[in-house]
């Protein structure tokens, strides 16, 4: 007895579906997220992510500077948490700044602090942002807290200000979770001057990948 070709193919397809395991997607949509800094010889890279024992990351937001900032930062937390399939990153708003891993202010970033690395971004007319990291000279320790500044440049009723603050909150929290470099793609939320509202496929791929590689720097101080 011989089977017709289409019958054979149907049986083969059925067998493949019945026996095959789920196939994970190829994750090659990412960009350089590590901080590249000058070293004694050439450059060095700094790669950070929060360890499981640090989670949830404690985020304190000044509520008296920009009224909407706490809710925008909660939305930013929800946005980044939803990127992850395996709870790699979790954060929560806290009421005590003394125990916070990340402090968020709704004011212009002050002049650069000694030894800190500033990641300026979101240079829109309505608002801008910056994230300050206190990295030790040997590039081994990141002293907490990470400080985020989200600065409304316009009056509260200015059209576009709300959107600018929302995407800047997501962008700066992206730095605080470990994306220390800006994306070269304009369609990514981690582009230096982001034009989109939410993380793109490349942002998601980068954020996922960085939590599955060992960090070169350890968070200390909180």
């Amino acid at each position: 007895m011989s089977l017709r070709p289409h019958t054979t193919i149907a049986f083969a397809a059925l067998a493949a579906v019945a026996c095959g395991d789920i196939a994970s997607p190829v994750r090659d949509d990412l960009y350089e997220w590590r901080l590249i800094v000058p070293a004694a010889v050439g450059t060095d890279t700094v790669h950070f992510h929060w360890e499981q024992e640090d989670l949830p990351v404690r985020v304190w937001v000044a509520g008296d500077e920009v009224e909407a900032l706490p809710s925008l930062m909660q939305r930013a937390i929800d946005t980044w948490e939803s990127v992850y399939l395996y709870r790699e990153f979790q954060a929560e708003l806290v009421s005590d700044s003394n125990t916070a891993h990340v402090i968020v202010r709704g004011v212009p970033a002050p002049s650069k602090a000694v030894r800190s690395v500033r990641l300026p971004s979101a240079l829109a007319p309505e608002c801008d942002g910056a994230t300050d990291l206190d990295v030790s000279p040997d590039l081994r320790e990141l002293t907490l807290p990470i400080r985020i500044f989200i600065n409304p440049r316009a009056t509260p009723d200015t059209p576009g200000l709300g959107d600018c603050l929302a995407l800047t909150s997501i962008h700066e929290l992206g730095h605080a979770l470990g994306i220390f470099e800006h994306s070269p793609n304009q369609t990514d939320i981690m582009f230096a001057d982001p034009q989109v509202d939410l993380p793109s496929r490349f942002d998601r791929g980068t954020a996922e990948a960085l939590y599955h590689l060992p960090p070169t720097i350890e968070a200390v101080g909180r």
Partner: peptide
């Protein structure tokens, strides 16, 4: 059974897990 979720489908996981 064969396991998958809507989120896994959305993320381009192919087939299902036995």
């Amino acid at each position: 059974h064969r396991f998958t979720t809507e989120e896994l489908d959305r993320r381009d996981f192919a087939q299902t897990q036995a």
